[in-house]
Amino acid sequence: MEESYKQYVVPGGLTYAGKATSPKAYSGLNRVKIAWLRGSDPSVVKAKVYWNNFADSLSVDIPPSGDTISVTIENLLEKKYTFTIRTYDGKGNSSIPVEVVGGSYGEKYQAQLLTRPVNSNVLNANGTLTIGWGGADESNGAYASEVKYTDVSGKEQHKIFSVKSLVSEIPDMKPNTNYQFRTIFRPDTLSIDNFYTSYTDGSGLFSFNKKSWKIISYSTQHSDGDNAVINFIDGNEATRWHTCAGCSSYPHFATIDMGVERTITQFGVWRTTFETGGDDRGPDKFDFLTSADNVTWVNQGSFNFNRLINGEQRYSLPNKPKARYFKFVGTQGPQSYMVMGEISTYGL
């Protein structure tokens, strides 16, 4: 009766080493880390990890202590792998095979990563930079933004901000300097490596926060409230500064104290949208003047303004003046009075 299977019977039975327990594969940059729990078999002294259908393998010595065994397989092509783990005791008996699936990431993954954009840079009077972030490619593994800058002591700093944050603050950036930023990715939750986009320069055209700004002089205003000159710097193009109708004429001006000296590289002007569709009673031409002390003024130029369109109209200042004060002077327009919406300055 035993004749049909007798040749397959091993006297005393087969001895198996304790198998790898709860293995996991951790992805990385052209590498994968394999880790598993030691298990309860003290006779296990070695393990072997196979991949590519057993064409490639790596031996691992099992130390006499420790709860976790791990090995990192380097120089892998970018693809998914099935890894097979066998453990061995001192007599050469092997365990039953245990499989775990993991992947290696490389140039293909790196090439599709997108830097999270910066929507705004606002610098307040105390020198704190507030960065407003755009959307991050979280579906591809984006989890943080890194900002590199020089602090007030001259040291290079790196700060990491979660992609869940819509705004980030840098309170100690050195004045008149720029910053760089990049996005950090993890392709999956078990990745042992981060992936980075290339650094991108901050715009260098920081929008100056207007909360500390003051109107220190002006030509006229039609009345307080809806027509007040303070509306010219309230951050809302839907409000208006309306000079006195019937009792004023060009030039019309407003002088603004930013509270701190800045390097101004650009400024922007809006017509008001207080009226439905926009108000065309702005100037056709204006001057922009700057001063460090509100005594000596430099005219940075005469500029054309399109009073027939909504939205910000930006103007560059090639001289990049350092100034605490600036003056907007409407010089020519269709009426004797003038109506404006908003003004902003940008720079370092």
Rank of each mutant, 00 (worst) to 15 (best):
I96K: 14
T276A: 15
Q221W: 08
I343A: 02
Q7L: 09
D188P: 15
H242P: 00
G66L: 13
D234Q: 08
E169W: 06
G282I: 03
V10P: 13
G90P: 13
K155L: 01
A55N: 04
A125C: 04
D193R: 12
H252D: 00
Y337H: 15
T296R: 11
A245F: 14
N119M: 03
K322W: 00
T21V: 15
K80W: 14
K327T: 05
P283M: 06
H222E: 11
A245G: 07
Y179K: 03
E107W: 07
Y179A: 01
P175M: 06
Q266V: 01
R116H: 10
N304G: 11
K285W: 00
I184R: 13
P117I: 00
S316M: 10
N30D: 01
I160A: 07
A20C: 02
P175Q: 10
L289S: 01
N310A: 14
Y315D: 00
V152Q: 14
D61L: 05
R262N: 11
P97W: 10
S217R: 15
N119A: 04
N209W: 01
G106V: 13
S223C: 04
V60P: 04
S4C: 09
D293A: 09
Y149Q: 03
N236K: 12
G246M: 02
D280L: 04
W270M: 08
T150P: 07
R324F: 02
Q7M: 06
E156N: 15
A35D: 10
A20Q: 01
K320D: 02
Q110Y: 10
T220V: 06
F328R: 09
V260A: 13
A144Q: 08
K159R: 15
R31E: 08
I34K: 10
G246I: 05
G106M: 11
N75S: 14
V60E: 04
D293F: 12
K211T: 15
H252L: 03
T21A: 10
Q300I: 03
E107G: 07
K19Y: 05
I343G: 02
E261Q: 12
D280K: 14
I170V: 10
G259D: 11
N209Q: 08
E74N: 09
